[in-house]
Amino acid sequence: MNEQLLEAADDELVVGWRDSEWTGIAPLLEEDVAFSSIAQNEIGHARALYELAARDLGTTADELAFDRAPGEYRCSTLVALRLVPDWARTIARRYLYEQADERRLAALKASDDPEVAGLAAKIDREEAYHRMHAQMWFDRLQDEPRFLEALEKLRPLVDDRGEQPPGLAELWEEMTSVRRSVAGATW
């Protein structure tokens, strides 16, 4: 179960990080607000999932999120890609990710562990808005060749968790640099 929780948490943290790279530069101001909010939600879900995993692993959410080596993360290749400034690929990723996340949450909701099932249900209520957002962009871009090509290229990466994803090492450097900047700091 902890493996599954960590996989989900790592996906949420990294996709949240990558999507937050659009803050301030999205194609429409209204979209900027919505997209940044979604990114923040995903990081919030990551925190809740890490907290649940940390309970059994005898550690903390922060340590799981920021103190592991890049090679220990279980996120998919899809979420680790840096896609700024390609909006078509970014939306394709959101669409594919939300579909995969919906399937994963359905499985977690059916868990025997009431805490896991409860958290999954809570997250899913918020994901419903993310799915609406992804669907609205899908409807708008579904005839755009660039979008369709992006969907096709990214689809195989959704469940690709073999090697360390390209871009993850650089992302990890950025993501943990402040935390590591003062030796022994407890923040």
Partner: peptide
């Protein structure tokens, strides 16, 4: 459609 999603948000 976009307005509905943004308004919900």
């Amino acid at each position: 459609e976009f307005a509905e999603v943004y308004a919900r948000e």
